[in-house]
Amino acid sequence: MPQQTQQQPKTTVLPALETVGLAFTYPDQRPVLREVNLTIRPGERVGIIGPNGAGKTTLFMLSCGVLKPTAGEVRLFGKPVVTGDFHPEVGMVFQNQNDQLFCPSVQDDVAFGPRNLGLSGDEVAERVREAFTVTGIGDLAERPPHHLSGGEKRLVAIAGVLAMRPKLVIYDEPTSNLDIRYRRRLINFLQNSRETLIIASHDLEFILEVCTRVVLLHGGTIKTGGNPYDILGDIYLMEEHGLERPHSLVPHAEPHHDRAGTR
């Protein structure tokens, strides 16, 4: 029998997000981002860490097509991002929820995205129901956003984004303004989510629990990246970039943490 070399079919999985030489400068200001090369594969949960002003939010805005890069390019799932176009495959949860909850009722806010997708009335209602179930906020439907707590607002914002069924979700400082219960709820939620995630946070313990990979952004470029425990546990690396190790990775005289790292 003739030898047949079994060729595995080449399946190249398109990265969820790919930036090549991405740079951005606000007019008349110092460059915010220079030469950012980032690849995020589907299914990853990548944490972006770095001191304030490192350019995380700008990076996100470029990735979503809200801002136009000064140089370089961005690709979402293989397709180039066109500034100003609607990219429902990516969703972003803002740092300040009040900027994102702009409808007078929770119901309307969550329905906003699906409506703009051109779905029928019934499909919109279905998406809203789904988003409510996933985030567990069904009882907030008729409430005005003004009266919600920080944690409730965060969940409504997430529901509004998920209602568009994005494949990639970006979270900008999601644990800020959350009390302990909502923080824990968010951690559980993210650990169970199936979308590709990019999370910017100062809450390093949170990053440890949720992310599969960490990227360090400082001075407009990516300095390094890798396993969260390795990066976040490296005291010299952290201090060099204005950060501190999360408490659980600080060696204790009496060890009282274990490296769980399992999800």
Binding site: F86, M92, F102, R115, V124
Partner: peptide, 23 residues
């Protein structure tokens, strides 16, 4: 300033696309 951020949030969720309003 807030309206600027709100506008970005809106276009990220499709503001400007032909929207459907169910009866």
């Amino acid at each position: 300033e807030q309206s600027d951020r709100v506008f970005k949030a809106m276009i990220l969720r499709g503001y400007g696309q032909p929207a459907s309003f169910k009866d």
